[in-house]
Simulated scan of single mutants.
Amino acid sequence: MAPAEIRPVSCAEVATSLAHTAVFTPLFGVREIAGPEQFRLDTFVRAVLPEDPEGRRVFTDWRSPLLGAGLRGRDLLPGADAHIARARFTDWPGSRPAPAAAP
């Protein structure tokens, strides 16, 4: 898993944002949404995956593609005008302790 930085958003807030976008006039056709916390993708995946009884692990590898594309450190972060969701990862239903935040 690439250690690119991400700002995950809860499913509930994605649904609310989508509903809001559907009933109002879109702004330039694009609306980015981001969570209030920033994590590394590899660290976040380790935190949210259930314990694997088979002992499989998540490895950090910059060469690891995401959906076939190579990633750089900030490629998955939103633009400056993104809507920032309110719910922190630890507020999500069924969440685990939050991973260490990205620097």
Rank of each mutant, 00 (worst) to 15 (best):
M1D: 11
A2P: 11
A2N: 14
A2L: 03
P3V: 08
P3N: 15
P3T: 08
A4M: 05
E5S: 13
E5K: 15
I6W: 06
V9G: 06
E13K: 08
E13S: 10
L18C: 08
H20C: 09
T21L: 07
V23K: 01
F24V: 14
T25G: 01
L27A: 06
E32C: 05
G35E: 04
G35P: 05
F39Y: 15
R40Y: 12
L41Q: 11
L41G: 04
D42V: 11
V48F: 03
E51Y: 03
D52H: 08
P53I: 04
R56A: 14
R56S: 13
R57H: 07
V58M: 03
V58N: 02
F59Q: 05
T60P: 02
S64G: 04
P65I: 04
G73V: 15
G73M: 14
L77V: 08
L77E: 12
L77R: 13
L77S: 09
G79Y: 11
A80R: 14
I84E: 12
I84P: 07
A85M: 04
R88W: 00
F89D: 11
D91L: 00
D91S: 09
W92H: 03
R96T: 07
R96V: 00
P97G: 09
P97N: 07
P97K: 13
P103E: 03
